[in-house]
Amino acid sequence: MSLAPASCGGFFVAWPDDAEQHRCYEPSRKDRGIGQDRLTAMGPMAGEPINEQEALARLRQSDDPSMQYYGAWWLGRNRSRHPEAVPLLIAALQQRRPRDPGAGVEENAVARNAARALGKLAPAALMAVPELLAALGDPDDGLREAAARALGDLGATEAVAPICARLAGGPAVAGARQDGCARLVEPCEALLEALGDIGVAKPDVLTVIEPFTRHDWPLIRSAAARALLQLSGEPCWAEPLLALLGDSQLQVRRAALMDLGAAGWRPAVDAISTTLAENSLKLIALRGLVENGSGEPGDDALLAAMDALL
């Protein structure tokens, strides 16, 4: 997905309130839980329901990449524990295929989806960490993004140094716009979030992240503040996220909701409840406060806030 500041989703532009549960992988976890009901039954590769054997078979064949794409998605979505799942996904992660604009297919679609699925298959997928680290160096920034998220999901501490190396140039280098398109040189949002999720709170890691709190794009600032809040627990890093809940762009408010939830920042409960966004996302954020946070407000107050949004 484009990392560009949203051009859609102004302050009063309204929202559908639902999750696209059967959609193939979202381009960004920031979009998780956003979508329209009517899309539910028609994901890009959706067809009739399949079972695990069918998903493995689709991934194993190589004549039809769209079948592989769907098979990889299925295995991640359903948290497959089949012994063949991870090896097949590792093999799929090696596939390279140019983008086919006519068919509406993203570059390296199968490899990207394999990376995303691996992120959901801990602990078995920990054996895929070396291949995911290799994908972190791929020329395709979309694949680097998927690999970074998977490494974050897997809590792979081995990824901290290579991710920091990718970000080391700061907003002016890693965070600069690519020529001619609305993407950054590095998939900064995913890289920053992975550092927060992996959870290595060393000073040199914080030093790499901190300059991105001044990036031009609010989504990058949000990801950086989230990671710093996760790693340091310093309340000062909640402030930018709370401010972004009042941003004029819906996409930014959504991102800040997800980031406060990921950080489990419980003092944000009231601000989350009153944010102008769909209740589905606020509920996901509040779930994050319950499950990822601690302290005050306590569980009962958070659950009461969730009840009020149903």
Partner: peptide, 8 residues
């Protein structure tokens, strides 16, 4: 209903 928010 296909929409989780509606079922919710």
């Amino acid at each position: 209903d296909v929409g989780p928010s509606v079922r919710r």
